[in-house]
């Protein structure tokens, strides 16, 4: 029994770290991993989703509806920003650092001025479940399921639907796609919007568990970038194993040596993984399968 208890506890910690990495990096995986836009405003899309979710939930609508609303609004905002700014930067991705940093400054400070320095939270639903004597947050178990569902849905979307195939074609060979009659401008807009919506979804999912402040997005940004980069060029092959490896390292180090080593260990692991596999995990995995 005690063994089961410890095993479940370990699994829970791993799943929790895994879910956090997967959910927070999904949006960035599309925008940065696929499109190559270095999006420093990723955290602000997350904040946008969280704020909308909290507002809608406080209107009395069910949390699921609120989270979807958060994702949709973030996605729409993303499409507008793509139209106005990002569209001009596809051929010079490094400049997107400056542009998105600017957007992030405007968003954080704008929210502070308009909505104030804090926002009331909405509370974690579902309560706790007791498993083998320890109690766990049920909502966090839901988040783990959500992370896996999200991976599956993204895979289906990009590999099994027409939109996905066209989107990948547009981003890999825009000229060819255009020659075949694809409205590439629209595809870029939609893909960026999808990335922003995924970031909004992350905000919505984590909104009930976090404090709502304009700078809340900053907690996500480093982990997101790190996961996407370790994953490598092909995000669908790389991101999930990257999140799994990093989550394992983080959960183990945190459990044994405390949060400091969890944090530092994650970053050191990134440096080491990139050194050993300069193309990221996906390049290595693909080489293995060839």
């Amino acid at each position: 029994m005690a063994l089961f208890q410890t095993a479940f506890a370990m699994l829970y910690q791993f799943g929790d770290a895994f879910a956090f990495l997967v959910i927070s990096c999904a949006g960035l995986a599309v925008i940065f991993g696929m499109m190559g836009v270095i999006n420093l405003a990723h955290g602000e899309f997350i904040m946008c989703g969280a704020y909308v979710t909290a507002t809608v939930a406080r209107e009395g609508l069910p949390l699921v509806v609120a989270i979807i609303a958060g994702a949709v609004v973030a996605g729409l905002v993303g499409m507008v920003i793509e139209r106005l700014v990002i569209r001009h930067l596809y051929h010079r991705p490094l400049d997107s650092i400056i542009a998105t940093w600017g957007i992030s400054l405007i968003a954080t400070q704008g929210v502070l001025i308009v909505l104030g320095s804090t926002m009331a939270g909405i509370g974690t639903p579902l309560g706790a479940v007791t498993i083998g004597g320890d109690s766990y947050s049920a909502y966090r178990l839901v988040l783990m399921v959500a992370a896996i569902a999200l991976l599956a849905a993204l895979y289906l979307l990009f590999y099994r639907t027409r939109f996905g195939v066209v989107a990948r074609a547009t981003i890999q060979k825009p000229d060819m796609a255009r020659a075949l009659g694809v409205d590439t401008g629209r595809m870029y807009g939609l893909t960026f919007g999808l990335g922003a919506a995924l970031a909004g979804l992350a905000g919505g999912l984590y909104a009930p568990t976090m404090t709502m402040v304009p700078t809340m997005g900053a907690t996500f940004i480093v982990e997101s970038f790190v996961t996407v980069v370790v994953g490598g060029a092909d995000i669908f092959v790389g991101a999930a194993p990257a999140a799994a490896i990093l989550a394992l390292i983080r959960a183990t180090l945190t459990a044994w040596y405390g949060q400091l080593f969890g944090q530092i260990g994650l970053l050191v692991a990134v440096i080491v993984v990139i050194r050993i596999l300069p193309g990221g995990l996906s390049a290595w995995l693909k080489r293995g399968s060839r």
Binding site: V85, A99, L105, I106, Q109
Partner: peptide, 11 residues
């Protein structure tokens, strides 16, 4: 906010 806008405009 102004700083952010200036950065955007510059880019």
């Amino acid at each position: 906010v102004v700083m952010g806008s200036l950065l955007l405009l510059t880019v």
